[in-house]
Design a protein around this nucleic acid. Structure first.
Lengths: 337, 337
DNA sequence: CGACCGGGCACAAACGATTGCGGCCCAGGG
DNA sequence: CCCTGGGCCGCAATCGTTTGTGCCCGGTCG
């Protein structure tokens, strides 16, 4: 049950008027004049990489002047000249999916620390908005992309590859591209689920596979089949495909499986959301979750452990993935290697 | 229970090498040459606002040429000349707080549609990183800020106000500033909670108040007192402060209240997370949640309804808040009013 | 003593788009 | 026939920073 709050919007009386953009009027020339040198010299003095072309004292004078005037370099002008923006774009399919905020947050911290800025774009799971957003970011001159939206066959990634834009894939990857990929070892995770369920005595296990156009979907499915065989368990008709990584898709898949009379005592879901959907569908048929059927999830989204019953799930090092993805991209854009 | 997945990172053999930045080599001059006109003319032809200074046919020729060459205007150069970046910064305290992704997503959609780009910065609830991030964004020349981090007394906001940077507050606001604010009507929401609990027969109600340096914390507390008085219920010693909007703080507050022998049959929590923490602390004392004590939350964070027991909570129109905040900022930066 | 060298700095050309200004041409009116 | 006016377009300055080039000067070596 919930109550609904009234929205509210307070505007200051008299509108917005009265502000002029008086921000940051001090340019490099001003600093140079204050220090009594030419702008070019001031530029070198402030640039650690070119600082050795300037005398010790001049560096100090310029620094002091910059400090005094509160100089902030104009990133736009610099970007125009150097064709580097120190901006990277992070593209996610849906930021409200609790999986992504952790990645976003981690990447942003690493990038900010390195002097980069992160722009976020949410594609709402739509390939066409993904395409247009990526184009917009490229026009904006971002230094690179972290893509969390990879599909197994992904034209957008192909274009990025062809254009040679520094790009790192996270969480999902495409079939064959040149891009570095940062993700968890799904094979191992699924393996653990199957072993866990077998140890509990289960023999007939169903897998709810994520969409086949995502690497996570197909790889977990493949891992499931392999793990089942390794455990000498039957895999015939034990994998059912889900249209997307959502609760609805999970519920639908389970309903379909029940309708065709599938027999199982446990479910390995490709995703936490699928697991929740599965549980709901089972409940519709009077099947209780830990009692009649065991379910494992995937991702260990934070609230999983607060649910009743608590799910067994695979924890994915989301924070570390974000960190790693950002670092990998930085190594690339900074030209190391 | 959870299993832990091994992290994994796949780098393409041979490193990153082999890419050169051959992206978007076509400039306005190229388009102009293709169309047989001067760059200035091409610029006007492509700019809807200046298009009427160019003949019908020239516009067509330029457009065709741009299309053919795949011209994308260089946003950086444009930004340098016009001193507008078409970028707005959205500052959140913690993106993993499930409250914010909805706002982020909504704002980003509105902004993208208007040709703007959203840069996200997560301050990790630290005022100093907030300050430095805002400075960095300003140097980058963003057109405006959407701030979701407002504290009741907030020097960063004061600086933005003094500098005249277009800024809109969302979800939280500061004590007295000139900035438009978009949020829900907390007073009304809390009122509904109190009425709801009273209708259930509760007379001794405890309020877990959020931090006093946030508007949401203090306003909900004020609303609680007012609503209690309106219902002719006692408010003496019925408000207990929490250090932050976290489960731990909620649990601590309830433990403290129990320790000092507070009597209550219901709790109005300032936040869903506080509500969860409260429930856990009660459970420690053998107090069951819907049976012995009723709890209401606030925000209707998505998973609240999956918890057992399901909480009564106040749904806040997060999406609409994001939309409204973005629109408000756009009106400002576009100079309307 | 002249030539050479190199540190330290000024000069000016980029980067790519926008925009005020002025010139050209043609039509229409005096 | 000349002048004017307006539509259309080219010219060049401009945004603020980076960076290649070259001058100047003091010192050292032959």
């Amino acid at each position: 049950m919930f109550h609904r709050a009234r929205p509210q919007s307070i505007a200051p009386a008299g509108g917005f008027g009265g502000y002029h953009h008086l921000v940051n009027k001090v340019r490099l020339v001003d600093v140079a004049r204050e220090a009594g040198v030419h702008a070019g010299t001031a530029s070198r003095a402030l640039n650690p990489a070119a600082r050795d072309a300037v005398s010790r004292q001049t560096v100090r004078r310029v620094e002091r002047a910059a400090q005094k005037l509160g100089y902030l370099p104009n990133t736009v002008a610099r970007g125009l000249r150097t064709s580097r923006s120190f901006v990277v774009a992070l593209v996610v399919p849906d930021i409200t999916n609790p999986l992504f905020p952790y990645i976003v947050r981690a990447a942003e911290q690493v990038l900010a620390e390195a002097g980069y800025t992160l722009v976020l774009t949410d594609t709402d799971n739509r390939p066409d908005t993904e395409r247009s957003q990526v184009a917009a970011m490229r026009a904006r001159g971002v230094d690179g992309f972290i893509m969390a939206t990879a599909r197994w066959q992904d034209p957008v990634l192909d274009e990025l590859a062809e254009a040679g834009v520094p790009t790192v894939l996270v969480n999902r990857r495409n079939e064959n591209g040149p891009f570095p990929y940062v993700g968890a070892d799904d094979r191992h995770g699924i393996e653990m689920c199957v072993e866990h369920l077998k140890a509990l005595g289960h023999r007939s296990i169903l897998h709810l596979a994520g969409p086949a156009n995502t690497s996570t979907g197909r790889e977990r499915a493949g891992a499931f089949r392999q793990a089942m065989r390794a455990q000498r368990l039957s895999v015939s008709r034990s994998v059912v495909d889900c249209a997307s990584f959502t609760e609805e898709a999970g519920a639908d898949a389970v309903r379909a499986a029940l309708a065709r009379g599938a027999m199982f005592t446990a479910i390995v879901a490709g995703n936490d959301l699928l697991a929740i959907g599965a549980m709901e569908a089972l409940a519709e048929h009077g099947i209780a979750c830990p009692r009649d059927v065991s379910i494992t999830g995937y991702n260990d989204v934070d609230f999983m452990r607060r649910l009743t019953p608590a799910f067994t799930t695979v924890r994915v090092p989301l924070h570390r993935m974000g960190v790693l993805a950002a670092r990998t991209l930085l190594r690339w854009t900074n030209g190391d290697e």
